[in-house]
């Protein structure tokens, strides 16, 4: 399994990398939307992208929209990682093509539950 973590915070990427790699994921990282598109074109298509909402250059919502424009990433699941809490925000993320969302702050259990829901790992 491969995952792409898109977040402008080094810490957040490190945390997610740790949790994901504990569950056997190969993890690639990107610092923002533009970086993520670059990583995607250069590497293999990951099974899941965990995308932060608020980032410089290109934010999470824009990134999701961009990714969904490209058919080669159709199978890729996208999980928005966000503190934007309103139903409106979550809805707009889902509308843009996100598969699911993860609320900050989270712990490893919550991440795993979400990954299980997406069918990427066995049930916790």
């Amino acid at each position: 399994m491969k995952a792409l973590v898109v977040d402008d915070s080094n810490t957040m990427r490190a945390v997610l990398r740790r949790i994901l790699s504990m569950r056997g994921f190969e993890v690639a990282e990107a610092k923002h939307g533009v970086d993520a598109l670059d990583v995607l074109t250069k590497g293999e298509v990951p099974d899941v992208a965990l995308v932060d909402w608020n980032m410089p250059e290109m934010n999470g919502l824009e990134l999701v929209t961009e990714i969904r424009k490209r058919p080669q990433y159709e199978q890729m699941r996208i999980m928005m990682v966000t503190t934007e809490t309103g139903i409106k925000e979550v809805q707009s993320a889902l509308n843009a093509g996100a598969t699911d969302y993860l609320m900050k702050p989270f712990n490893s259990m919550q991440v795993e539950e979400k990954l299980a829901l997406l069918g990427l790992i066995a049930n916790v």
């Binding site: 915070s9 957040m12 410089p56 503190t83 900050k104 702050p105």
Partner: peptide
Amino acid sequence: DQIFRGIHTIKGTSGVLG
């Protein structure tokens, strides 16, 4: 926006780290 994002990042990461 940059200022906001900075504080937002601190909130987010420190939340995850408890």
